[in-house]
Design a protein around this nucleic acid. Sequence first.
DNA 1: CGCGCCCCGTTTACAAGGTAAACATGTTTA
DNA 2: TAAACATGTTTACCTTGTAAACGGGGCGCG
Lengths: 233, 233
Amino acid sequence: MTETQNRRRPLNRGRVQAAAVQVADRDGLKGITMRSVADLLGVEAMALYRHVSGKNDLLDSLVEVVVAEINDACDALPAPEDPADWRTNLRRRILTARATLLEHRWAPALISSHGTMGPALMRYFDEFGAILAAGGFTLDTIHHALHAFGPRALGFSPELFEPEAPAVTETDLDEEAALADMAAMAETLPFLARMAEHLSHEASTTLGWCDDQDEFEFGLDVMLDGLEKRLER
Amino acid sequence: MTETQNRRRPLNRGRVQAAAVQVADRDGLKGITMRSVADLLGVEAMALYRHVSGKNDLLDSLVEVVVAEINDACDALPAPEDPADWRTNLRRRILTARATLLEHRWAPALISSHGTMGPALMRYFDEFGAILAAGGFTLDTIHHALHAFGPRALGFSPELFEPEAPAVTETDLDEEAALADMAAMAETLPFLARMAEHLSHEASTTLGWCDDQDEFEFGLDVMLDGLEKRLER
DNA sequence: CGCGCCCCGTTTACAAGGTAAACATGTTTA
DNA sequence: TAAACATGTTTACCTTGTAAACGGGGCGCG
């Protein structure tokens, strides 16, 4: 019966990519394995090599797949009311990209580690730059801005400190140890100690310690403010 | 004779880390292999496991090693003239960190991919935050700023588009093909086409297309400007 | 002094994963 | 219909991380 399905749907690059995306969505980036992707397709690992030249090629192509999705989402946006309002237009585009990425949590890491610039990425940046140009920035400034944004242009910012597996069961936050930590910290890390205390006091206002979306928008707006200052008039 | 040297210098965590750094400096991150590191030490791979709990542990610890180096460099800096001049002080610290990272080109990728927060990193951010605090920022704003800076706080910004192996020999920039590309690009990517042309015209001013250091400082200053605006008075 | 224990590196072995090469089978073309 | 081709399978190999058992030398304790 798997055979019947195989006959029905012959393999092709698109199906391989789609399967890889599915695997990544389920098991994360490390879950992507020639064999795991092949399994999902009911096929042997070596079969994939007819359609991708190797794992690297597959991974690179996944970046393009995701960015293509982003482009689609951006295309679906209503046309900007005021083309000269670069700030609103850029912000909207970036947050749209972010929304798409949130459905593929593994994508940021992939994008960061694969410095390839395919057609989809180019198109994204073409329109990105066009928005800035419409806002009155010079080509030079735009060029710098593209570098300055970095991954933020695509809607994510690499977090230096990601918990990965927080998993602190209630019972194991040992009060005593925590206090000892605090005391030690206050000595060697006076500032962080102050901040930790401050944050724990108002922790109730936000969900968890740091709301990713909030942090992202804060950083984005800082960037936009800084850029605005460079708009010569 | 290797034996003699082994007897002379018994293995320990520090030497393992140092060897790993050396390998990475030479062959890049992917060059770090239990066996390659062991080889460099004149030892078998499994010997490393007495001092490191696994490759992951080794890699994590390398982050700390590098950041410790950064901290040393920052400690060697003369004391700030004006503690309230957060902008100058922060800028100096960040650029010092960057200078250190430039000697370990592999470090940024490592740091980005290992979301661990060891003592060295904590110390770095402790002083980082302290500078902002001395400048008059609220704890909340500082917290946001730390997120907003992200890797830039350590002196690097993830480049979305890294050439990796530029390697365009003079003979193979086929004039004809290049023009065809340009034409095709002007159609589908009008903005990038404009920018490419503009940049190629003034390419002589900077070395190569994009000067990393310049780009970095531009982004940094944009960020600082944006932050300055959030300094409530 | 000698015996046993432990520190530390070695040997051996295996599993996971990428991929080359030969092969089989069905489809298309001459 | 036979040859060429496309597509997936089988086998096999290599690299790399790591578990487990081993060995030997130095040090403390009887």
